[in-house]
Design a binder for these strands. Sequence first.
DNA 1: GTTTATCAGATTGTCGACAATCTAACGAGC
DNA 2: GCTCGTTAGATTGTCGACAATCTGATAAAC
Lengths: 223, 223
Amino acid sequence: MAETHADISRIENVPLRVSVADIIRQAILNGTMKPGTPVVEMALAEQLQVSRAPVREAIQILEADGLIESEPYKGKRVKPLTLKEVEELYSLREQFEAFAIRRVVERQVDVSELRRHSDAMFEAAERGDLAALNTADEAFHRTLIRLADHQLMLSFWDNLYMRIRQIMALRNSANRDLRAVARNHPPIIEAIENRDMIRAISLISDHTRSASQITPEELGIAR
Amino acid sequence: MAETHADISRIENVPLRVSVADIIRQAILNGTMKPGTPVVEMALAEQLQVSRAPVREAIQILEADGLIESEPYKGKRVKPLTLKEVEELYSLREQFEAFAIRRVVERQVDVSELRRHSDAMFEAAERGDLAALNTADEAFHRTLIRLADHQLMLSFWDNLYMRIRQIMALRNSANRDLRAVARNHPPIIEAIENRDMIRAISLISDHTRSASQITPEELGIAR
DNA sequence: GTTTATCAGATTGTCGACAATCTAACGAGC
DNA sequence: GCTCGTTAGATTGTCGACAATCTGATAAAC
C-alpha cells in the first residue's frame, strides 16, 4: 500500500519506469529539455519523488530511442542534433513513405481512412490551429504507413517520427501557410486511389522536402 | 563452446550491463536461447555471478533491440518469430539496399572495398566454410550500406541484420550451394560501377529473396 | 460439482546504501 | 610559472533487501 508518489500518478500495472520515461520523453519532444541538456538521475528522481532505479531505467529506454546519449561514468544528456541527422531523418522518411505507397497500391488497400485526417487538417488550418494541424498531419502519414501492413517498418517509423517531432518543436513554425500544407494531401490520396504510384511518390516527396527546412541556430548550432 | 559462463571478465570502463547484454545477445543470436525461451533475471544473475541490477538493464537493452519481449510483473522471454516478421525483415532489407545503391550511384562513391568481401566469400565457399561465408556476406552488405553515408539507415540496418542473424542460426543451412551464393556478388559490384542502378537493385533483390526462405518448423511453429 | 476466496511460490519492480569512475580545483615540488 | 599527484565533489554503476504483482494450487462455500 505504498502511497507516497505525489508527482507521479501510479497507474495499475504500469511500472514507474514507463511513466517516468513518458514524462522525460515529453519534455524532450516539446523542447523543454533541449539538445545538450544534461540528464542527471538524482535530480530527476528528486523532482519526480521516486528513487533512482526507475529513473535510470527510463533514461535507458530513451537512450535506446536515440533521444539521450551517455558516456559511462561521465554523464548523460539530450542528444545533440546535427543538420546531417535532420537530412537523414527526412530522406529516410521519404523512403518509408514511397515503400508504403508501393505496397498499398500493389495490394489495392482501401485508403479512404486518409480522407478523415486530410479533412481534419483543413479544419485545423481554417482555425489557424497549428498544433491540431500537426497532429492530423502526423496521423495522416502514420496511417499511410500502417495501411502498408508492415509492423517492422511501422516501428521504425514511430521512432523516426518521434525525432521529427522533436525537431518540429525546436523550429520556429510561425508564419507558415497552414492551408497550403493541408492542400498537399488530397492529391496524394487521389493518386493512390488511381494507382498512380509514380505521381503519389513524387507528391509525397515534395511534401517531405518542404517540411525539412531548418537552420543551424534552431538546432542549437551543433554542426 | 558455452563453457566459460562462470564469470565475467571486467573490462575497463565498460559497465557490467554491457558485457551481460553481449553475452545474452550472443546466446540468442547463435540459437542457444531459442524464441520463446524464458529470460529470468535471477537465474542469469546467478549464472553470471553478478547482481540482478546489471542483468535487468542488459535485458532492457535487448528488449529495445527487439530480441526480448516482456509483460510487466509476468515475465520476459526471447521474442517468438513469425513468418510474417521474417518476410518483413527481408523486404525492408531490400528497400534499404536499394536506397543505398541509389545514393552510392548518385554520389559516385568508390565501392572497390566491396571486392575485398566478395573475394573473401569465394575463398570461404572454396573451403566449404559456411561461417566464414556468412561473415563475409554480412560484411559485404553492411559495407554497401555504410558507403551510402547515412548513419540513421546504418543503425536501422544493424538492428535489422541482427535479427536476420538470429533467423539464419535457426535455419537448417546444410546443403546450400556456397559457390552460388558467392557468385551472386561480383555482378552487383559491376552494375554499381557501371552506374546501372536498375540492374544493381534487381540483382540484389534476387539475392535477398533467395536468402529469405525458411519453414515454420525452423522458427518453432509460431505462426 | 462448480464457484469463489485464499494462500504460497515465482518473478518482476522499487528502494536506499555503497562502490567505481570522472572532473576540476588545489597545492607541493621543481 | 609549470608539472604532477592528490583530494573533494559529482555522477553513474552495482548490490542486497523488500514490495508489488501474477499464476496456479488448494480449500471453503454453495
